[in-house]
């Protein structure tokens, strides 16, 4: 849209001057959420530089180093801050590498859901008719079932794999976007600017993309933010049950599963730390999501 505005100040400067940025800098929870997310993104991108060991390079593993507790406990060493697992794998390194997979799945599934859901919502809302009825009926039926359950059953049919997890998550995730966008589209459709565009002879797809879409995007930002967190949790649940990511690409959820097997022998750190990380990052996402919802949803103001 910036191209439509001649002589516009830089996007960053415009953002910093906005009310949203103003409130953001004054909300402790929004800042906390942003810092957590930023830290997580840095950790994920800088991954290999943060760890001495690549936990998936078998040559770097030493079985003699297995079952080391975190460094502050007796028997722990500074080499393995959070201890090691059954195969001598550094728990911290596993978390760094596992976070990459968890975050990638959360983000990619969110983008896929948003794209498919928003498209269906725009089409359903703009054209109405039978197509609208069919899409919304499917959405209604799907919403009466919990997402985790649908994803679990889909994965039981698909088998394990990152791509399959993505398909399962998009299958459950598109609905919220479709519903929200359809509602907003119905509202915008009757506005004067859309009528004007119609009268001026613009083809439908251009009206949808250039006029309706930009005006229905705001509520999507909130949904998308929170959904990344939800997806990370669902993916963890699936992987924990053994129907998520394969053992060669362990996410945080699969790390918890690995640790569960040895929990009863008192080796808690293998499963507790990956869970703490999931909690921390989803908490950060939810903090920011809550803030955005309060800011961007004028109904609640």
């Amino acid at each position: 849209m910036a191209t439509n505005m001649p002589a516009a100040p830089s996007a960053l400067r415009r953002f910093m001057a906005s009310e949203l940025a103003h409130n953001w800098l004054r909300s402790a929870s929004a800042i906390a959420g942003s810092i957590i997310i930023l830290g997580f993104v840095v950790m994920v991108t800088a991954g290999p530089y943060l760890t001495a060991q690549n936990p998936y390079d078998v040559r770097q593993l030493d079985i003699m180093e297995a079952f080391k507790p975190p460094m502050w406990l007796e028997g722990g060493t500074g080499q393995y801050i959070l201890g090691t697992d059954q195969q001598g794998r550094d728990v911290w390194a596993s978390i760094v590498y596992g976070s990459r997979i968890s975050l990638f799945i959360g983000l990619a599934a969110m983008l896929g859901s948003a794209l498919i859901g928003a498209t269906l919502g725009l089409v359903a809302g703009f054209y109405g008719g039978r197509l609208d009825t069919v899409i919304m009926r499917i959405a209604d039926i799907q919403l009466s079932f919990p997402s985790v359950l649908i994803a679990l059953v889909l994965m039981s049919a698909f088998g394990t794999g990152v791509d399959k997890v993505l398909i399962a998550l998009v299958s459950v995730g598109w609905v919220v976007y479709a519903r929200t966008v359809r509602g907003a589209t119905l509202r915008e459709k009757s506005r004067e600017y859309v009528q004007a565009a119609r009268v001026s002879g613009l083809p439908n797809h251009k009206i949808i993309l250039k006029h309706v879409l930009p005006n229905v995007l705001t509520p999507l930002i909130v949904i998308a933010t929170i959904q990344v967190g939800t997806f990370i949790l669902i993916e963890a649940s699936l992987s924990f049950l053994g129907v998520g990511v394969p053992i060669t690409q362990p996410s945080l959820g699969l790390l918890i599963k690995n640790g569960f097997d040895v929990l009863f022998s008192g080796l808690w750190w293998i499963s507790v730390f990956p869970g703490l990380f999931i909690m921390l990052v989803v908490f950060g996402i939810n903090l920011l999501g809550d803030f955005l919802r309060d800011e961007l949803n004028p109904r609640l103001k």
């Binding site: 963890a236 918890i256 640790g259 507790v272 869970g275 999931i278 909690m279 989803v282 939810n286």
Partner: peptide
Amino acid sequence: ISLPGFWLGM
């Protein structure tokens, strides 16, 4: 809301 329920169980 943010923590995985199964992890809490563990």
